[in-house]
Design a protein around this nucleic acid. Sequence first.
DNA 1: GTAGGGATAATCT
DNA 2: GATTATCCCTACG
Length: 191
Amino acid sequence: MLGPDFYSSFDTLNLAKQLLGKELIHESPYGICSGIIVETEAYLFNDPACHAFNKRTPRNEPMFGQAGTVYVYQIYGMYHCFNVVSGKTGIGEAVLIRALQPVQGLDLMKKRRGKERELDLCSGPGKLVSAIGIVKHLNFHSLASKPFYLIDTNFEIENIISTTRIGIAKGKGDELPYRFYVSNNKYISKK
DNA sequence: GTAGGGATAATCT
DNA sequence: GATTATCCCTACG
């Protein structure tokens, strides 16, 4: 299991890249699901798209905690997104996990998602949250402990592609190259 | 296979 | 009252 020092050893942009190739594991009461992280986005404190850009509020409070804290929030009234808090404690920054390559618990993921194709399980931030059973309850959880944590792997990464982020309004940080994904991986959310 | 739009509610102003 | 770090279905070629 990756410990607290892993998350605090990098600034937010570098952590976003370091998270690629790590295996995210959730041991829920219904079973274990996991996947390799293949796509991330960084959100910095001085970045208009960051939830913590304006000020500290009840919703973004986890972002100001220790690096490695879980930040889960609801979006569009129906979906949840999962972030890994990054940077120094007291500064609101985080890395959005956008896609996984499924590894363990495929049957449970298919059941939770109501989809059969592997490509439809974790190829988007809302999808992967649903697939591996992340719930609002895990907000503020530390990824350095069970039941929700990361491990290192031997996953081979040829190259990391850096592009602009998905779903950001024009003029609100849409031009920043803060999206990262594993090249030639078919499980990413989109090209 | 791809483009367009509707669903749906917490959060903040 | 506006906004939103999304997903899925439908229509069309």
